[in-house]
Structure formats: structure tokens, C-alpha cells
Design a protein around this nucleic acid. Structure first.
Lengths: 337, 337
DNA sequence: CCGCCTTGCACAATCGATGTTGCAAAGCAT
DNA sequence: ATGCTTTGCAACATCGATTGTGCAAGGCGG
């Protein structure tokens, strides 16, 4: 098959006794429109196949100014983003395009830089997941006329698909409330705490709303101090739960954990506690972590529907959606014991 | 800055009162060699910056036949591969190139297809992680003169970097042996089992060797039936441990779990067992899973040094290494209780 | 047999950057 | 002033595929 260097349409043209333009038309499927006879087209296609010809994407992209590349920008490769990436890849490849996945380390400067890089590649479209500075990025894409869509973290200037964080948080909170252990009678410890995330981000904000919704609906009092949402950082989460434990003199009666990283950080401390203390707290985690179901105490979880998120994002993109915000309700995984 | 369409060197040339070739030289740094005066070069660079000019990568790639793209092929996005992807991205971007990460779903056909696709993009080099059919891929790359390197799964035809699975498995097995619970006295149940993986793959093969090494070194008898290594599949792992449990009438005295997916599958069954039974088995997992340390029973783990693997792979690639096999010894994470 | 419409294809321009070649002007020695 | 070397840059061909245009041969009506 492919033996030496790359062949061009000119080589094929010579071998087929046709012109390069005819070969091009035959191979890219436009031959009908270009009034090339079926016989000629088939002959050329056969020869091209025999020679193992494949088209030079740069040349095509240069001419058509469409690269056939679709980019996904993720902050990092955690479980959730990796799932998104996986689904994204499948969808892109199903469309005969090439997925380009880049992590930006949550750095706005890096995000800008990557987008400008992608612009130079004449990227067909861009999916932003959990971007730090959506508005800037959207403007950048608009300037370059690149269709784009936001996932997980919405943008007012472009179509966005996000998890219905409020509904999810409400579901999770209700589940926590439904499985509360008996009261300890020690005041603060009988409260339910919300831990982790960044309250300045819409996702965290909405989860806090959902949390409050559920509490209100059941007439449970809620004081601002019960919401500890400064960061998604794992180590910070460990410190936060330690501090809370020290302050309350034990675990609270319920704990809403706002992401897998916070979950991991929290568990690092919590897992060392005696069985009895663990049983005195109802845990919920807004993220799905399979091992969470295998701990020695129940943890309710909420899982984002990553496939749906990606599919809807494609739909919006391919239908030239205006800047709408779509919300996808997540799934509840109640602990089984 | 960037207001409308993309500018070309011709636009800049017009604005600078110079020719396109001069602009090109000024902007890509070859102006000294091309005997462009420093004054002219600086003037052009200044104008280009003001206009927010950025170069069209397709055009450059077409002309130079170097794309500036570096690809990573992964089977899927699990924890290990995602870590590799993360490190890979950082290294590539540090070199001012563009990382392209593609998952092939462990499908040899898909692998071939992707490589041929990448060839058409004039990819600068390719990293294969855990490939199914390394030899074919290597030949494909050689035909296209694409430098490439294999990680995790070695290839005889190209430089490869893999974890020293044998040494790692030996370390892990020794740790299991060192923490064995007291004998039950019930024959088969006092044995140690190796679970998961695919014995036809070098990685599994070498881990089995390491497992045997450690057993031999301590004069522990080992029968072929103690090695159950047909697949990495999660569900199959659940079934396998269930079957083993049924056959032995309980957990074995020690269990070597060969990967995170198998770990997850095994735990799905095991986590439901009573505390006492769990304490009667020493668990080791050849993969690192943070939640593994938080289970209600100790699990020793071995963690592959993904950063080192990637760094060595780059080194081999950039130094035009012949087809050598480099082994990186993994890290042992003994359970803490 | 003549004009006219298809059919079938070749030609050539083009996308934007690179790099080779050529050619003035400047510098220098004699 | 003459000849020779440098310096500084513009012209032009090129990478490979796409696409607008032109033109010949064939078909058909009158």
C-alpha cells in the first residue's frame, strides 16, 4: 500500500490520464456537480485507492478555510472532564472530523492563548468546558467567526449547556434530609453543612440555591455559616472539614459535598474517623465517584449526564443556536444502605 | 485588537511598505539569515503586533510540511491515561506545539484509521499509549516518516517507555505477603490470587512474573489456578471475584488486583462483605486510586510514574532513539493501617 | 446542414507562508 | 572612476487541493 512518499492529486491525475481538478472532484464527491462522468470518477477513485492516496489536510484547509478540526477546552483531566472528553471524541469522530482536546489548567491567560492558537488552525468550532472567563473567550471566537458553545460553565454571549445545578442540589439535599441520623442534641452539630466550591461561580451559586430550596421546603433553618464555599481545592477541603470538625466537636448531622475533588479532600480526613461518628452524618456528594459507593458509610451522589450535555451542545452548535442556556437535570444515585 | 477578518503577511507588507517575503522573514525570526536590516525587521514586527497579526498554520504547514501538531493516542480516558494526557499536554505546550489527544477505544481498526488521519495532518510525532497493535502502527508511522514512541505497551520496532511491571508487581506482592492475615486453615482459601488483566499482553505477563518472583523468594507455593488473568473488563472482574468467593467459600488470604478497572469491579462485590471477612484478606492493587485508601480495609497500591514515563518518552523522541525499551519503576503506596 | 444546448473535462487562479534567486545600491579597495 | 564585494530587499515559484471559467465534442430540433 503506502510505500514511499505521499502522493498528490497530480500523481493520481497522471496515472489516470486526467487533470488534477477532475481528480479532486472525483475524490471529494463533488464530481456530480462538476459534471464529471461516472465512469471517469470511478476510474479515478479506483486508482486512488490502489495507490493508497489520502488528501493533504493542510492544503484543503488552506483552500477552503475549514480545517475539519473541532476543539474541546477543559480545565484539567478529572473524572467528569475526562468523561466529557470521551463523549466529545466519539461525537466528533462520528462526524468524520478530528477532535482536539486541550487543557488550560484554569488559567485565563492560557485560555486566551489556546483560542488564538486554534484560530490560526482555522478550527471549525470550539467547545468550552468549565471555562474561567467565558465572555472574553466568546468575544475572541466571535471576532474570528468561530462557532462555539459552552458546557458546564455558561456564557451569556453564546449557547450554553449546563447541568441543572439547582435541581440537582435540591434532589441531593432532599436525599440527605431523608436519611438523617438521629439528632445529637448538641446544637450546631445538628445542622447540615454545604462544603466546597466557589460561590462566585454560577454552578456553585445554583447548587447553594438548590440546597436552600430543599431546606426551606422542609422548614429546616439555614444560617450562612453553614455554607462553606470558597474553593474546589482538594487540600483546602481537607483543612475545611478538619476545622469544622474541631469547631463542632464532631461531624455535622449532614454534609453536602460539592464536587469530586472536595469529596476526595474531605474523605481524607473523614475516613479516619470511627464508624460510629460516620454513621452520625448523612453524606451527599454533587459528583459521581464509583468508589464513593464502596465506603463504609452511605454517600448519596448526583451524577451529571455528560453524554446528554455533549449531545445537546452539538445540537445547539449545528443548529446555529442563539445564546440560549440549556439545563440538563442530573441523576441521583442514592446510597444503597 | 482583532476586529474583522484575518490579516495576512500581504496586508502587513502593504502597511509596512515591504514585500511579503520580507514580512515573513521578519516575523518568523529568519530575518538575520535573510539579511533583512534590524530596523526593517523591528518596524514590521511592531506593525504586525499592532494589527494583531497571527500566522495561518495551514499555510505554514503546507509549505514547510511540518504541522506543529503532536498526537497522543489513548485507548480511553481512565485515571491513568488521563494523567498521561495531562502531562503530555503540558510538555507539548511547553515546546510551543499543539497537543492532539485522541482515544481509539482499543480498536485496532480505529487505531490504523486515526494514524492515517494524522498522517494527512503531517503530524510531527505520535505518542502511543497502551496500543493494541503496536507493530502495525509503528510500520505505518515509518512509512510516513513520522517519529513515534510507545508508552505503557511496548513495541519492538520503536522506542518504548513502560512501567517496570515486574519490579512493581514484586514490590506489591511483597507488601501483600508482609501484611497477610492469620491463616484460616482452609486450604485453598489460604492462597494468594492474582486477578485481572490479559496474560497475552506484556504488561500483565510481566506483572505475573513479578508476582511469582515474590512468591518464590519467600517459598510460597503457587499454582496456575491462582492466576486469573483473562481481561481488564470491570464487569468480568465482578463475576470473577464472585466465582472465586463461591469456590473458596470466602475471600482468599491475599488478592493481587491488576488495574483500576478490575479494582472497581472487584470492590463492587467485595465492599458488600462483612468487616470480618474483609480483614481476612490482604489486598493489593496495581494502580493508584485515591479512594482505595479510604476503604474500610487496607489496600496496598502501586502507582505508575506518569510524569516520568512521559518525560522519558519525549527524551527518546527528541534524541532520535533507536528502538530501545525503557522501564520506569513505579511507586509503592502501602496502606496505612 | 446550422444554431443551440448539454455533457465532460482541462486550465489557471487561489488560499497564505516560505525560501530561492536576482538585482539594485552601497561600501571599499585600487 | 573602475571593479568587486556586501548589504538589503523584491520577485517569483512552490506546497496540494479547490473552484470559477472556458472550450471542444456530442446530441437535437428545425
Amino acid at each position: 500500500m503506502s510505500n514511499k512518499q505521499k502522493e498528490t492529486i497530480y500523481d493520481i491525475a497522471a496515472k489516470a490520464g486526467a487533470s488534477a481538478s477532475t481528480v479532486s472532484a472525483a475524490l471529494n464527491g463533488t464530481w456530480k456537480k462538476r459534471r464529471i462522468s461516472q465512469k471517469t470518477a470511478e476510474r479515478i477513485i479506483k486508482i486512488a485507492r490502489e495507490q493508497g492516496y489520502t488528501t493533504n489536510n493542510q492544503a484543503r484547509a488552506l483552500r477552503t478555510s475549514r480545517s475539519g478540526l473541532v476543539a474541546l477546552l477543559v480545565p484539567e483531566y478529572n473524572r467528569f472532564f475526562s468523561n466529557i472528553a470521551q463523549t466529545f471524541s466519539q461525537e466528533v469522530r462520528a462526524r468524520n472530523l478530528c477532535p482536539v482536546i486541550i487543557s488550560t489548567e484554569r488559567d485565563p491567560e492560557e485560555e486566551r492563548h489556546v483560542v488564538s492558537d486554534l484560530t490560526n488552525w482555522q478550527i471549525d468550532s470550539v467547545f468550552f468546558v468549565g471555562s474561567v472567563a467565558p465572555d472574553d473567550l466568546s468575544r475572541q471566537c466571535q471576532d474570528a467567526a468561530i462557532p462555539h458553545v459552552f458546557l458546564d460553565q455558561p456564557c451569556a454571549l453564546a449557547p450554553s449547556v449546563v447541568t441543572d445545578n439547582r435541581a440537582g442540589a435540591r434532589m441531593l439535599t432532599e436525599q440527605i434530609l431523608a436519611s438523617l441520623p438521629p439528632q445529637s442534641g448538641e446544637g450546631l452539630r445538628d445542622q447540615i453543612y454545604f462544603l466546597g466550591g466557589d460561590r462566585t461561580l454560577p454552578s456553585t451559586y445554583n447548587r447553594i440555591e438548590g440546597f436552600s430550596d430543599a431546606m426551606c421546603a422542609q422548614d429546616v433553618a439555614l444560617h450562612p455559616s453553614q455554607i462553606i464555599a470558597e474553593t474546589y481545592n482538594k487540600d483546602a477541603a481537607t483543612r475545611a472539614i478538619e476545622a469544622l470538625y474541631a469547631e463542632l466537636g464532631g461531624l455535622p448531622r449532614g454534609l453536602f459535598i460539592n464536587s469530586d475533588s472536595v469529596f476526595e479532600g474531605t474523605m481524607r480526613f473523614v475516613a479516619g474517623l470511627p464508624e460510629k461518628e460516620l454513621r452520625a452524618c448523612a453524606f451527599g456528594c454533587f459528583d459521581y465517584e464509583p468508589f464513593g459507593q464502596l465506603l463504609r458509610f452511605p454517600v448519596h451522589m448526583v451524577r451529571q449526564r455528560h453524554r446528554t450535555l455533549v449531545e445537546r451542545a452539538f445540537w445547539l452548535l449545528e443548529n446555529n443556536s442563539p445564546p440560549v442556556l440549556e439545563q440538563v437535570v442530573p441523576e441521583l444515585y442514592p446510597a444503597e444502605f
